[in-house]
Design a binder for these strands. Structure first.
Lengths: 408, 408
DNA sequence: CGGCGGCCTGCAAGCGCTTGCAGAACCTGT
DNA sequence: ACAGGTTCTGCAAGCGCTTGCAGGCCGCCG
């Protein structure tokens, strides 16, 4: 097909070694030479063969991205942010779509990543010890988005805090009977559970409970309904809550999709939102706006971008040994950064911006963990309970909490 | 890292050439030898270096997938179908997310695919002649999904027919003033138009008009509103239609997302659906069910899968020369297959199943074009017009058409 | 029994780059 | 003017596979 490095070398009157160095911008090439080489390359429309470079250099120039389902809004968003950053850095992205439990097992059995990637990005999977081991055996940097996995660097939000803010919002509106629509695994062993076992549901449930507790509202197991982490799951959970003998006046759904399902059930039941029932979601799904849904917005595209940047920085600082925990500092914790708002963004996103600079690492042995902030977007699905006073019996127990009070 | 082919060769007591052949399942290896080699490889956990194979063989084992936006439901679905098939075939998928016009230009300028892929899959982009040329210069098979591009093989639905079915449904319900919510480019030159210029809007509009015409209903430009191919676009277009002096009693939206936007506008305007206004969408979006939206469902994941299979078959039959049009048969048309329902599916999907077998090609010189069927899913957003008879003046013009009459 | 065609296997020449090492050319300071 | 640096550049040895070609070994036909 198109020319090889030798032709360029010949045309520029230098050796292939010099062409290679010049084109890659290595420092030890005279500027005049570089210009000659670049021009020759341009003239021949030369593009280096990635296969050859990879073989010779031992770098694959590729990052593996492991995702539960590409089709889910959330993951597609993250991939989009990741792709932009990786491409800008000249890296290829190798996509692995798990699909289901079987696919997940197949993936971790076959480890199709061996010799194919320089780094791995894992989305939202709370990895099992065995899976962690498999990834570590790859001996490349690993970054996890949307889950905290011991030993691996990560980017995520604080689900507990986000959920707390959501529920506190409802409390402040005057609600006392607040339901939870949870995406957590239902029957522990049953085949009906959410296959990927995301950690978000658990954490968000924790945030829900915590908000209630700290407001002095007793927990009521009858106000917690669980289902799949999907629209349908939300529909069913809401139905379950409605059929309770003392239904809530408001619900917190652990995802926007579940919240949408809940809204549908409510509409079918002839209940009005927010008059009869307030609903809060979580995630900041594109469609949430369409439902005028109050929700906790997390920067999604940006988490993907940050994760990619983190990966790049790990790739640059590639240190021999230590692909996981091996810290000689006490404990095996991780360095956590809470990020305020700030600077530039390659991939445009919803909220404020963060960035990870190249040399921000604290201690190479301790994996970095970046926590990006969420914010509440109050829309039209929340308002004070219909007949404020219904819950008089409880209301004296609740102490109002300012919505922006520190969460923990 | 892990062993090389030589170690396997040594352990199995054969040459590296034999290991290579044995592991790839080439025919000329004695079965006993193959077993020994396979065992040795397993014992050493040997995995061939893709970089080395690729360099030596000249095949990249990679397919480039060019997509307007990964974040759009539709494209994510297609990618999912494609990924499954390609992975099963042992091919890697290199994702190119265009993002916007600038990204598109950048892509076709730099042609980042050169020397990197054995084939290219392009999603829904009506390619310009220049873009076609660029892809042809790659000299690899190209398959286009969701658009008919002369000279390239493709997989798509019949948008005109689908839209016709949708509108005919409304006509049969008794509607005579039927609006169109179009995603077509608004101001031709304006920066406000849909950047990617998909062909779906144009074709679906054509179907809309055709259905009206063949029912003897005169076209009314005042009943056609255009906007972006998004929820917001649908919102605005619906608002435009409502503000007309003689609003329609039903609307056909060119996508489910636009239909959702339309529903929102209607709700806000206090109109009830379907009583005051019937709405039909197009695509079979996951969320459509949530809105109980009547829509034209197209198999999306499956189109991605079929496209991948088509690509595989092109890769297998790789014929020298002819990467595009070069047919010696009269005309430059393409071989079109209309597919009925049938058999197996690697990637599970919505409706019936199709499959492309390896040796179905008619004439290597004429690019294959596969048309998959759509079907209408009638849900709750359509019903007869409120006051049947409002349009008496027009109704005598309309001749009812059975919903399942042949479309063309 | 010689020869011929098949079947397996090994040899070795790449595939097109990268990079350690060494040499050439050019500075610097003394 | 010379030793000791710097800077550039070229040499050539790989990187780990694939594959055309040739050769060895058999079995079988004439």
């Amino acid at each position: 097909m198109s020319g090889s490095i030798e032709e360029v070398a010949a045309l520029a009157g230098v050796s292939t070694a010099t062409v290679s160095r010049a084109l890659r911008g290595l420092p030890n090439v005279a500027e005049s030479t570089r210009i000659r080489v670049v021009e020759a390359a341009a003239q021949l429309l030369y593009v280096a063969s990635p296969q050859a470079s990879r073989l010779a250099s031992g770098r694959t120039g590729t990052v593996g991205v492991v995702v539960p389902y590409v089709t889910r809004w959330f993951f597609a968003q993250i991939i989009s942010g990741t792709e932009a950053v990786l491409r800008a850095a000249g890296l290829d992205l190798l996509l692995y779509n798990l699909g289901d439990d079987a696919g997940r097992a197949r993936f971790f059995d076959a480890v199709p990543l061996r010799k194919r990637v320089d780094a791995v990005l894992v989305l939202c999977l709370p990895l099992t010890p065995m899976e962690i081991e498999v990834l570590q055996a790859l001996n490349v940097p690993v970054v996890v988005v949307g889950a905290a996995v011991p030993g691996f660097a990560g980017v995520r939000i604080d689900d507990v805090a986000g959920a707390t803010v959501a529920v506190r919002h409802l409390i402040n509106l005057g609600h006392r009977r607040i339901g939870l629509i949870s995406g957590g695994a239902t029957g522990e062993g049953s085949a009906d559970r959410e296959p990927m076992r995301f950690t978000a549901p658990t954490d968000r449930r924790r945030g829900y409970r915590q908000a209630l507790r700290s407001a002095g509202i007793p927990l009521d197991p009858g106000l917690e309904a669980a289902g799949h982490f999907t629209v349908r799951g939300g529909e069913q959970a809401m139905a379950e809550l409605l059929s309770a003998q003392a239904p809530p006046t408001a619900v917190f759904a652990e995802s926007d999709e579940m919240a949408m399902g809940a809204l549908r059930t409510l509409r079918r039941a002839g209940l009005r939102v927010p008059d009869d029932m307030s609903v809060v979601g979580f995630d900041g799904h594109d469609m949430a706006e369409l439902f005028d849904l109050t929700t906790i917005v997390q920067p999604v595209v940006r988490q993907g971008a940050i994760a990619a940047q983190l990966l790049l920085s790990l790739l640059r600082h590639e240190h021999p040994a230590s692909t996981g925990a091996s810290g000689d500092d006490g404990g095996g914790g991780s360095t956590a950064w809470d990020m305020g708002g700030s600077v530039d963004d390659d991939a445009a996103d919803d909220a404020a911006g963060e960035s990870v600079s190249a040399d921000t690492r604290v201690d190479p042995a301790v994996p970095i963990s970046i926590v990006v902030p969420t914010r509440m977007h109050v829309r039209g699905t929340t308002c004070p309970p219909r007949s404020w006073g219904d819950d008089v019996s409880l209301s004296h127990l609740a102490r109002p909490v300012p919505p922006d009070a520190p969460v923990m």
